[in-house]
Amino acid sequence: MRKFVEKLSAVLDHVADLSIRIAGIGLFLMTVFIAWQVFGRFVLNDTPTWTETSSILIMGWFLLLGAAAGIREGNHLSFDVVLFLVNDKAKSVAFTISDFVVIAFGMGMVVYGLQLALKTWPTTIPNLGISGGVAFLALITGGALLVIYSVERLLRRAVGLPTTRFSDKLAEAD
C-alpha cells in the first residue's frame, strides 16, 4: 500500500509541476496580452477588443491550476491557532475532515461547473466569438485536480507519510 502511494505521489509530482508551469505561462501570456492592449491604444490607435476577455479566461485557468497545486504544496492560508493546542491524534482527525471538505467542494466544482458549462454552451462570449461555456472549463479541471490531490493527502496520511501545510512552512522557517 505504502509503495503504491509513493508511486502515486511520484506521478502527481509531475502533474502538479506541469500544472504550475502551465499556470506560469498563463500569467506571462496575460502580461503580453494586456501590454499589447496598451500598445494598441497608444501606438496603433486601434484598441484590440479581444485582449481583456481572453486575459480573464486565462486568469481563471492559472488561478485554479495554481490553487489546486497549492493544496498539494500546502500553500493555502489557514487558521492554525487551535491546532497548536491539541495532540497529534486530534490534529490528524482535523486534517482528515479538512481534506474531505476540500474533496466535497472540488466535486461541487466539477458537477456544477459542468452544469453551468452545458447551460451556457449555446451562448457566445462577446469579442471572442467562442462559446460561453468555455469560461467554466477551468472550474471543472481545477475541481478535479483538487479532488485528486486531496485523495492523495488522505492516502498518504493513512499509510503514515507526511502531508504539507501552510503552518509547517512557518514552523520550519521559525
Binding site: 492560508l77 489557514s78 492554525d80 482535523a94 466535497a104 503552518s167
Partner: peptide, 17 residues
C-alpha cells in the same frame, strides 16, 4: 472549519455550499 484548520478559501466556499 476555520478552527479545525481548513484553508480559508474552502471554509468560505464549503460553508456557503
Amino acid at each position: 472549519l476555520l478552527l479545525i484548520g481548513t484553508p480559508v478559501a474552502f471554509c468560505l466556499g464549503a460553508s456557503s455550499f
